[in-house]
């Protein structure tokens, strides 16, 4: 696929995942209604919406502090600063995002902040040491692409929705254990069983959709980055180096995993079943490199199995 085709396809798939998300929420609402009737369902809906708003607001600026990032000025890190500045110009952002450095040997980078005005990007000392200028341009363009595509807001929303679904499921399970349900006795049992099944499965489904959404946004950010730099090969080379590197990231947190250039949770021992891929926040690096190769018309050697040094 060409660059423009990949961007279009990633957008379309995002919409598909979001539609599935809405259907899932509708399913949960329907299950609540069938199982508990209107009155209790309404109370629960209010609690859920309240919790959702609280979680969305609270998710604001926890990332940088949790990751041990410190802000840097243009004088301290001129090359990194220029790279981010140029990517921001190419993306048409009104201002260059604030830049943070994380003291960590593991090469990685992330973008955060819900609006482009409040956005910031961070890079580990490991990635600055590992990559040359061209590769770093690719990586920072990927982060700026997340900012421009409003991915942080989207993924925060997705995380909050999954949280709300899980909360409803928990409440229902507790209610079932202790109260047996208000209306369940005088309704047909098959409906109740389906409702219970839906409530148990909904959080898992939500998590799967959240991860699928995250992977779509990674592909989109890669394609956008190629558009911003005009150099898909730079990013592909960087991803290749990241794939070969074996440093585990120190400050890892499942809640922020979707923000990084490559998954900080990546299994460094190669022990992963194929089904594990469904719960990944990031697509496999080889697949991402392949797509960049397709749009750029170049060829890198395949990633060695298990990494070069282990």
């Amino acid at each position: 696929m060409t660059l423009q085709e990949q961007i279009r396809s990633a957008r379309l798939r995002t919409v598909l995942v979001l539609v599935l998300f809405i259907l899932l929420v509708a399913l949960v609402v329907a299950a609540v209604y069938v199982f508990f009737g209107q009155g209790f369902g309404l109370i629960m809906a209010l609690v859920a919406v309240g919790y959702g708003i609280f979680a969305y607001v609270a998710a604001g600026s926890i990332v940088a502090s949790a990751s041990g990032a410190r802000p840097v000025s243009k004088e301290e890190a001129p090359e990194l600063y220029r790279t981010v500045e140029n990517a921001a110009i190419a993306a048409g952002l009104a201002k260059t995002p604030d830049i943070f450095i994380i003291d960590d040997q593991a090469p990685n980078a992330f973008a955060a902040g819900r609006t482009p005005e409040k956005a910031y990007v961070a890079a580990t000392t490991g990635i600055l040491a590992l990559l040359d200028r061209r590769e770093l341009e690719g990586v920072m363009a990927h982060e700026i692409a997340h900012v421009r595509n409003r991915d942080v807001r989207l993924m925060t929303l997705a995380a909050v929705m999954v949280g709300v679904i899980s909360m409803i499921a928990d409440m229902l399970l507790w209610a079932t254990v202790f109260g047996g349900g208000r209306n369940s006795n005088n309704q047909n049992p098959i409906g109740a069983i389906i409702a219970i099944a839906a409530i148990i499965l909904a959080p898992i489904g939500g998590a799967l959709l959240q991860m699928a959404l995250s992977r779509r946004r990674e592909y989109l950010a890669d394609a956008t980055a190629a558009e911003l730099t005009g150099d898909p090969e730079g990013l592909a080379r960087a991803l290749y180096k990241l794939a070969v590197d074996r440093h585990p990231l120190q400050h890892v947190n499942r809640a922020t995993a979707h923000l990084w250039i490559e998954s900080p949770l990546r299994d460094h021992h190669g022990l992963r079943s194929s089904i594990g891929g469904l719960f990944d926040t990031h697509p496999p690096l080889q697949e991402r490199i392949d797509r960049l190769q397709e749009m750029g018309g170049f060829q890198l050697p395949p990633i060695p199995a298990g990494g070069a040094e282990a």
Partner: peptide, 17 residues
């Protein structure tokens, strides 16, 4: 050299839009 890079970046943005 930095300015040349920034001109190139601004040009890419303009042409993409």
């Amino acid at each position: 050299s930095d300015t040349e890079d920034k001109i190139a970046a601004a040009r890419r943005y303009y042409n993409n839009v």
